[in-house]
Design a protein around this nucleic acid. Structure first.
Lengths: 246, 246
DNA sequence: ACCACGTTTTGGTCTGGGCCGAAACGTTGT
DNA sequence: ACAACGTTTCGGCCCAGACCAAAACGTGGT
């Protein structure tokens, strides 16, 4: 049989919601700094620091110091496995197929970036816009963020199609009301995804519209956004985002 | 919200110590009644009932009603798997007081394994033998029970020192009386501790001597052993076992 | 029908631990 | 050496939830 080691200890580490979010953020193997994880988890950096200290003591994460940053990552594959297993047990809303599982995860991290959507949701939306023919262009490949977020829109050109214009207008985007001087379409290289998400005037207007429709709800405290039930359905239908089981 | 499962929920269920003990008790697939589990976990039946209700809601256990008893068991193999995985990440239980604890818990703390001591007492004794220089060897590290109990004595060598021989002989161990063909020193990977305890001819002789001295008393009904007053003092002095609170 | 007994529900107390902001710490860059 | 910035530590507040005892519930035995 398995041991009678004190399984409550690691379980308690995962049981705390903020720590769970931290772990899930690290779930794909990335190594991230405290401040980033704090923002992802929606707590103060001091709080996150405390959490990471405990996770470190518990052997669930490991840390590497680079300069004045400390990059935390999951300790080993046992931990990923554990998180995965907990994920399958967590539901009422269980992830049925692998496809839906990865789809669900794609939408996991949704947040705003200045005035537009970012995170996996932002990236998925961008992909949806391309798939639906609302936008054309790009080279099919994302450009790794050599300049970070600093020089968006330089390497690849995205263009709004005729069909895309009509689609978005009927979706409620008011092109006339957009600021004239701001470029319509830009993109950011998403730091967490290393793929593009839409910014520019259109990106801002799109987020605006989504909030008006109550498809997404920006949180007060941080840049996170929650996707509503209606949003799940609407995003899936309108922009072909991966469907999630209700 | 979007569909990633909230892993904090099942984790919180396991994180509570009493619930963790309940789950571990069910770990071998047995189905047990509330009152039994309450005793095992060391809480009132009302408390245990509440816990089991939560575990049921969370889908970690299932229940079958027979007469006026309700027999709880683990819901499925996912749960066992999860517990097992947590076990590999969990720290070994620390030996606090050998005298405290519920009757049921004493089995965990101190029990026999065939003809020698196991449980926390067995592990602590093993450590004491090493600390006192009675035994040498090992690699300082215990081997995590990846291979379970299948191959005891193979990975690490423990040896009886000269000094240890004298110590044990003056303690009343009769080396001459030991069976010739049986290996003097073996160890088992303790299932509850994931650490080594002493077996072999010496392990058997040692338990024998401890019983003779009335330092420990094997229970009749199960494999538990109780440590007597004299045993508390004697074990502490002779083998340097952790000080026990009165 | 009644009683006995295992289980669940209820009510009230209490503590562990998460949260934040401010201050301390340590490293990098000027 | 100093300033800037990321991280950790400290102090105080607050709430979720675990605990027990007693009462309510339900099933089986007589």
């Amino acid at each position: 049989m398995f041991g009678d080691a004190d399984i409550a200890v690691p379980a308690a580490l995962i049981a705390e919601p903020a720590r769970a979010r931290i772990l899930q953020t690290l779930g794909d193997g990335r190594a991230l700094a405290v401040s980033v994880l704090a923002q992802e988890a929606g707590v103060a950096t001091s709080t996150a620091s405390g959490h990471l200290g405990k996770l470190l003591d518990g052997g669930l994460v490991a840390v590497e110091q680079h300069g004045r940053h400390r990059y935390y990552r999951l300790a080993d594959e046992h931990v990923s496995e554990l998180l995965e297993l907990l994920g399958t047990l967590a539901p009422p809303r269980q992830v049925r197929s692998l496809r839906e599982g990865t789809a669900a995860r794609q939408v996991r991290q949704a947040r705003t970036c200045y005035d537009h959507l970012a995170g996996e949701l932002g990236v998925a939306l961008m992909q949806g816009l391309l798939d639906k023919g609302v936008l054309s262009g790009g080279d099919g490949e994302f450009v790794a963020g050599r300049d970070r977020l600093s020089a968006p829109g330089s390497a690849v050109d995205y263009r709004l199609t005729e069909h895309g214009f009509e689609t978005l207008e009927s979706f409620g985007i008011d092109f006339a009301a957009m600021p004239k001087r701001r470029p319509l379409i830009r993109y950011c290289v998403d730091w967490s995804e290393q793929r593009h998400h839409l910014s520019g005037a259109l990106g801002a207007a799109l987020l605006d519209r989504l909030v008006t429709l109550d498809w997404v709800r920006p949180a007060r405290r941080n840049r996170a956004v929650a996707v509503t039930e209606a949003g799940l359905a609407g995003l899936a239908e309108t922009f072909g985002l991966p469907a999630l089981d209700s």
